[in-house]
Design a protein around this nucleic acid. Structure first.
Lengths: 347, 347
DNA sequence: CTGAAAGCGCTAACAG
DNA sequence: CTGTTAGCGCTTTCAG
């Protein structure tokens, strides 16, 4: 009764109640073997009685493990528009899927993700500081633009990190990715398989490797089908940009009968524009999206799309990071996932 | 050169380089006044030179502040379907907006949010443990169902916490919320102002206070306009549930010419069904949504909707939490935001 | 205004 | 198998 009742119980308190030493209590708390069964029970009772919960700061201080990782979304962030970046990013169902996958993997492992956005130099320094402070044991990075300096800084600082998607500039760092070219091929095959002969594509931002790969893969596959030229319009992975791109495409190539959009959001925008111009989907023009995210199910007609197993990829990313945390110095590794075609009504 | 170059520099290292004591370095790092200007500069130089970053665990151990808060999404989670809950939740644009608002507020305050989902008893205990461990200084709670036991446990444990939305069961805890009734009234006024006389509503899950309040507010406003009876169909805040509810409504009340959906996702579903049944929107039936989230902009026609300033509310939630963390024992407080009607094409 | 010293709560050798 | 003993890196009285 000497300490105020508000102070949380410590190992010492439990030890006193159980009549053993701190070390013993620590052993049973941490599940170390080598503790007599009877004593274990006594200790456990004492823990219950005191309501003890180990103090994570104290533990971290000695184990040098935070038990948290940083989940960072990094991107351009127009100066003065910082919050807008976060808003845009979190409005994209893609990030929800990443978060969901990461959480699903981490939840049983007693590691927790700290959400961070790195859209300005200041924010990037925050992220680096956070990691160097040991506040997180490593970083999961989802980059939305090509010139992101974070991957390079992370490897330079020798901080454990895993990216979602191959970095635009080559950097020796682990990442998970999709075989985008194979995915685009799936779309091309579907479109020409359905008899489409005037096929165009709405690409993602072309400084992003994934966009490049989807375009390349699509073109290659079309070429192999005997179509040497594919009209393209560049979008920005948003619904609005998909609309704009489709308008341009339609203006220059009114005869198109097939469309591949590099993600579902843009495909959704394309659908809107197509309908506005009186084109029936899929009768007049078939459209295939990419991702298989929520919008694909909500729009009408429902989207035929190339599925990217984002949750699985995110989980793998977390798994990889944890191995890097446990085994510093492990060489970078990449894990590539296979896409799958999901056929619905649009194409 | 005695320690391995991999070990991060400590206060001690900086002190040695600067030729001062640890305490002095600590003072300049923490911006305490009372330090000679010249010495400050020397110390700062030493910090730069060594690349020092304060160890957060060590700091937390003594300050009893984690510098992080928990951002927890809590909900039902069908047994065996844990991950599905997270997936569903993160697919909802609403949560992205919450995250965005929280991050926007926290980013300049050197506090970071840890993402957690509490959909099972085990997960709830994790959350409680996390907080009691001092891993986070408090919790921001977004609850998706009425029977959530977390709010009560949080107050019982005297842990700083703020909810998004008033809890279903009365609990002395801080929260931010919207004046849902006022929002619903905005929708009713709009609909009857546009001459609609057969108005129905798709509600949210009726065990959730927000759904209740929107329904009550809507009914009251309609009654004041002279319409004593409003057909309703209950939905679950998802697009699919909105479709189903609208189907039911149309089957029983084919003559409706106005529809209020308790969120945009359901309104989006309603649009689909209405169009499928050949009803033009807004000519044949006007529809008004709620939230003003992303789907409202993407669907066609674009949704007239009641705006909920989610980002601002989330920011306020974070602000409130921080005051509770700084001043334990402060009485619970509620902050209620005003809705606004956003007129677009649907109604 | 600065330094010395005492811990914060925990884990990890190291003895016994 | 259990207890003793050092710290982990930092903040914070308390002297000077």
């Amino acid at each position: 009764m000497s300490r105020p009742p508000t102070a949380p119980p410590t190992l010492e308190d439990v030890a006193r109640v159980a009549g053993v030493s701190r070390a013993t209590v620590s052993r049973v708390v941490n599940g170390t073997r080598n503790v007599d069964h009877k004593i274990q029970e006594v200790v456990r009772a004492a823990i219950d009685k005191t309501g003890y919960a180990p103090n994570r700061a104290a533990r971290s201080l000695v184990t040098k493990r935070a038990g948290t990782i940083a989940l960072v979304v990094s991107g351009a962030g127009d100066p003065g528009e910082e919050d807008a970046f976060a808003a845009r990013v979190f409005a994209d169902p893609f990030f929800g899927r990443v978060a969901s996958g990461v959480l699903g993997f981490l939840r049983t492992r007693n590691v927790h993700p700290v959400l961070m956005v790195a859209d300005t130099e200041r924010a990037r320094e925050d992220v680096m500081g956070f990691l160097r402070q040991g506040s997180a044991d490593g970083a999961l990075l989802v980059s939305t633009h090509a010139e992101d300096p974070l991957p390079a800084r992370l490897v330079e600082a020798e901080l454990p990190a895993v990216l979602f998607a191959r970095p635009a500039r080559p950097v020796p760092i682990s990442y998970v990715d999709l075989d985008h070219q194979a995915g685009a091929k799936l779309a091309a095959d579907r479109l020409v398989g359905a008899g489409r002969t005037q096929v165009a594509t709405v690409t993602g931002p072309l400084d992003v490797p994934a966009s490049q790969d989807r375009l390349t893969g699509f073109r290659d596959a079309m070429a192999r089908h005997g179509f040497p030229y594919v009209p393209i319009a560049e979008g920005g992975f948003t619904s609005a940009s998909g609309e704009a791109a489709t308008e341009r495409l339609l203006a220059e190539h009114p005869g198109i009968d097939g469309l591949f959009a590099a993600n579902d959001l843009m495909a959704q925008g394309a659908l809107l524009v197509l309908q506005k111009h009186g084109r029936r989907v899929p009768e007049d023009v078939a459209v295939v999206g990419f991702d298989d995210s929520n919008p694909a199910l909500v729009c009408r007609p429902r989207l035929t799309t190339v599925r990217q197993p984002v949750e699985d990829m995110a989980a793998e990313m977390a798994r990889l990071l944890l191995t890097h945390v446990d085994q510093p110095g492990l060489p970078p590794k990449s894990v590539i996932f296979d896409p799958a075609l999901v056929v619905r009504e649009s194409g």
